[in-house]
Amino acid sequence: RLGFCQHHDDEVLHLYCDTCSVPICRECTMGRHGGHSFIYLQE
C-alpha cells in the first residue's frame, strides 16, 4: 500500500525520485523535485 506525502497531505506517493532517492507525490514533481529524474511506483 502506498503512503501519503509528508509535504502534501492529500497526495499519495505514486512516484520515486531517482535524483534524491525518495518516494514523492505528483505535486512534488512540480515543486521541490522539479526537473529531477523519477519513476512511477507500483502498488
Results as ranks from 00 to 15, higher is better:
C5S: 00
G34E: 09
D10F: 05
D9N: 04
G31P: 06
G34N: 08
E27V: 08
C20L: 00
V22K: 09
H7N: 06
L13I: 03
T19S: 07
I24C: 08
D18N: 07
T29M: 13
D9I: 13
C20H: 00
L2S: 07
C5G: 01
V12A: 08
H36G: 02
C17L: 00
Y40S: 13
G31D: 08
G34F: 04
V12M: 07
R26T: 12
T19G: 03
L13Y: 12
T29F: 08
P23E: 12
L2M: 14
R32L: 15
M30Q: 14
G34Y: 03
C28W: 02
R26Y: 05
T19Q: 15
C5N: 02
R32I: 10
H33F: 00
H7Q: 12
Y16K: 11
S21V: 04
S21L: 10
R32Q: 15
Q42M: 03
R1S: 11
F38A: 14
Q42V: 10
E11Q: 12
L41Q: 12
Q6C: 08
Q42T: 14
H8S: 07
V22E: 15
S37H: 15
G35F: 03
T29L: 08
H33R: 01
I39S: 13
C25Q: 01
D18T: 10
L2I: 03
E27I: 08
M30K: 13
H14N: 15
R26S: 11
F38G: 05
T29W: 04
C20K: 01
D9M: 08
Y40Q: 15
Q6W: 04
V22H: 15
Y16M: 10
V12P: 08
D10C: 14
L41A: 12
Q42D: 14
V12W: 04
L15I: 13
D10E: 12
G34P: 05
D10G: 13
H36A: 00
L15S: 08
F4R: 06
G3L: 06
H14W: 03
H7A: 08
L2C: 04
Y40N: 14
R1H: 15
C25K: 02
L41M: 09
Q42N: 13
I39H: 15
S37I: 11
T19K: 09
I24D: 02
M30V: 13
G35L: 05
C20S: 01
C25T: 01
Q42P: 14
F4Q: 05
C25F: 01
G31K: 13
R1Y: 14
I24L: 04
E27F: 04
G35Q: 10
I39Q: 15
T19L: 07
C17G: 02
Q6I: 11
L15Y: 03
F4W: 03
S37Y: 03
S37C: 07
C5R: 00
E11W: 09
G35A: 14
R1V: 07
R1C: 12
L15D: 06
I39F: 08
L41C: 13
I24Y: 02
F38P: 08
H8L: 07
L15P: 04
C5V: 01
C17W: 00
C28Q: 02
F4V: 05
F38K: 07
L2N: 10
S21A: 11
M30Y: 14
G34I: 10
G34C: 07
F38I: 10
S37K: 14
Q42K: 15
G31L: 08
F38E: 04
S21N: 06
C17R: 00
D18C: 10
F38W: 14
C5M: 00
G35R: 11
D9T: 15
R1I: 09
I24M: 06
S21D: 05
H36P: 01
C25A: 02
T29D: 06
H33Q: 01
H7P: 03
V12C: 11
Q6K: 07
E11C: 07
Q42L: 08
D18K: 14
V12N: 06
H7K: 12
G3V: 08
Y40R: 14
Q6L: 09
L13Q: 09
H7W: 06
R32P: 13
F38M: 11
V22I: 05
T19I: 07
E11I: 06
G35M: 03
R32A: 13
M30L: 12
V12I: 10
D10A: 09
T19M: 07
L41V: 09
V12Y: 06
C17V: 00
E11G: 11
T29P: 05
T19R: 12
I24K: 02
D10T: 10
L41T: 10
C17D: 03
L41G: 12
H7G: 05
